[in-house]
Nucleic acid binder design. Structure first.
Ligand code: SF4
Ligand code: SF4
Lengths: 140, 140
DNA sequence: CTCTTCTGCTTTTGTAAATTGCATGCCGAA
DNA sequence: TTCGGCATGCAATTTACAAAAGCAGAAGAG
């Protein structure tokens, strides 16, 4: 079980945008370079974020991406699920019919609990919270 | 982020052994068939479980695997970590030196929290608990 | 002995993640 | 109204790792 790079890059990107403040428009190339991630890969991620209107895209010269929502109102879960769809730690979750053992399967039982507790964590922190935490670390 | 089949099969296998009770010795072929999983794959998984002495192996005719510990004392976390090593939801956890951003990285921060809460769930349930839950479901 | 079953190691296969490429569309500036 | 910068959309590729299969060898029971 591994957190994917797409998820990591996406969250880092959104945080970077938010840090620039004032809904400034930043070209993707700058975001990619600042985070040290491949630009084309990040492009695809940001397209998903755009669809979820977490960021807003601007074409043309002086174009780029700006925030689409107030970082105080965007949870990590929203960002992550915008990138890679709803969480399913195991294939049978969300599709009970895929396995005959489903109703009494202890593995499914514990994985569902695990997933729930994972999502709770991601829901608890907003982008603003994460930036706040980072500032704290820098200050101390 | 996905729970792997190795983890799933391993937990299912241990549960199956425990359900047979009395530390009976069961050949791997039976475990594999009962769970509908490839035997050679399960073999590798059980080798790891053997090293962690969660199960005990017996060679030769009438050989197979029996439980190595009381299911009341084995948590799901122990089983899972025996199979695939310690949990690292993201590469920088467990190796802080691998990334310069590490000390102030908000992504690492939230992933560490997520991992902790995941492990708490896995630690809360023993194999016996899981079997108990299954019985309940069957009864109702 | 010999048959059965695990053991360790190697190899193959399959699939999804991660990355790259390119033609196209849009926009703002000059 | 043209031009250059930048996002878009889709396709293709590469890489990585999970999943599975194979096989010679060791160990145990009878
Ligand atoms: S065996 Fe259990 S965990 Fe695996 S797919 Fe079926 S229900 Fe889900
Ligand atoms: S950027 Fe953050 S999450 Fe990614 S590797 Fe570095 S510390 Fe870990």
């Amino acid at each position: 079980m591994q957190f994917t790079k797409a998820e990591e890059y996406g969250v880092l990107g959104v945080i970077y945008l938010a840090e620039q403040g004032d809904n400034r428009i930043i070209p993707l190339s700058e975001v990619a370079e600042s985070q040290g991630v491949p630009e084309k890969f990040l492009a695809k991620i940001f397209q998903n974020l755009t669809k979820a209107s977490i960021v807003r895209s601007h074409r043309g010269i002086k174009g780029g991406f700006s925030l689409g929502k107030n970082p105080v109102k965007v949870t990590a879960r929203e960002v992550i699920e915008a990138i890679q769809g709803p969480y399913n730690l195991i294939r049978c979750i969300g599709d009970p019919a895929s396995c005959v053992k489903h109703p009494t399967c202890p593995v499914r039982f514990i994985i569902e609990l695990a997933e729930r507790s994972l999502l709770e964590v991601f829901e608890k922190y907003t982008i603003a919270d994460l930036i706040g935490w980072k500032q704290e670390q820098l200050a101390s």
